[in-house]
Design a protein around this nucleic acid. Structure first.
Lengths: 206, 206
DNA sequence: TTGACAAGTGAACGGATGTTCACTAGAATT
DNA sequence: AATTCTAGTGAACATCCGTTCACTTGTCAA
């Protein structure tokens, strides 16, 4: 919509957005000048004038009285397709998948990140078998019933025990390898099952 | 959560939130005084001082340099448990934060994972300075304007370059440390800025 | 070459703005 | 009754900040 934006104008617009986002209020003329390398506030004044004429900003009188046009506002009610995916248990110790009644929680995931079948779920990771890439407490998104390729990360069931490993199929057996080199490879033939592919990971700090 | 708020303090806090929401920047002392019916800016000064001590606002020097802390900037219709958080750029190389027009994408995040101020955003990580825990391509959720504690992960700006590091404050300087031991510590004094705390991480496989 | 124009410099100006100091009135505390 | 605390007044002040004016520089078209 805004026909042509100068490089300088774009730079100032970026700086305005950044400052407002990080500090909570707009910068002064002199702060803008310093950012752009100007030695005069007059240059800022004229650029802001141009930006206002183009409708990118709106100004009132007084210090820092700059408001960005409506594109800045984030619409939280956008109709993005999001699905709430259940967190159903833990992996790498004990029984991995609990009954549906034991859904601990639900986390939002964009629908285009999920396969169509609606059976994905989250598991909380225990242990450090995939450290440091996957850490204890991380939540892995597991897609059951999708094709797993070589070296992808899977949740595998081995004798009633579930673990997160990389998947290396061979002629008549499968090697399950940890990213953490202190864990030895696990070679399995038929006494195991791939629960699903790990397609994403969510980590919450603190 | 906030211990006890005076009626006046609540009135000022409401006025701050309303002004910021409607005008895009905070009011001046005299505007606050006029709203409250004060005839002196000194009363405003002391109330703001008290509010800052209670952690409700944060102030810098200069005109209108008031930032509301966490809880108060939310719209009254925030019953949604999920908020779409914008992905606004990359970090660890070049310019870190692009204009608001350049929102690449939006990702859903549970609202109770976010501070209430609605200014959180995602950045895509480049490089391996925090490997293996944080890998290239990961999306980090950045909360600007929250207190950062020792050893937490932050996005820091050092001379127009943004990086993800662990934050170790010392007497009159700050050590920024990579998890990846092949990167040396960066010691900075004043020529840097903490953009925000990294509070979560999302990784998409394949 | 000339002229127009956009972009920036440098300095000065005046008003806006946060700060400070001395003081008052009422309420709570001792 | 004396003292302290809270909340606000009023004025003075230094500085921050947007505005304005005159001038310079480089580019492009006529």
């Amino acid at each position: 919509m805004p026909p042509e934006l100068n490089a300088r104008q774009q730079e100032i617009l970026d700086f305005l957005a950044q400052t407002i986002r990080e500090r909570g209020f707009p910068p002064t003329f002199r702060e803008i000048a310093e950012h752009c390398g100007f030695r005069s506030t007059q240059a800022v004044s004229r650029h802001l004038e141009a930006l206002e004429k183009m409708g990118c900003i709106h100004r009132e009188s007084g210090a820092r009285s700059i408001r960005l046009a409506s594109r800045l506002l984030e619409e939280p009610d956008s109709t993005e397709p999001v699905r709430m995916v259940p967190l159903v248990g833990e992996v790498a110790a004990g029984r991995p998948i609990l009954a549906v009644e034991d859904i601990e929680d639900r986390l939002p995931v964009r629908q285009d990140w999920l396969p169509v079948h609606e059976r994905s779920f989250f598991l909380r990771v225990r242990g450090d078998s995939m450290a440091e890439g996957i850490q204890a407490g991380d939540l892995v998104l597991v897609d059951p019933g999708v094709r797993v390729h070589r070296a992808e990360i899977v949740v595998a069931m081995i004798e009633d025990e579930a673990t997160v490993k990389r998947f290396y199929p061979e002629a008549d057996r499968v090697v399950l390898r940890s990213d953490n080199p202190t864990y030895a490879d696990i070679v399995v033939s038929r006494d195991f099952r791939v629960v699903g592919r790990v397609s994403a990971l969510i980590r919450k700090y603190r």
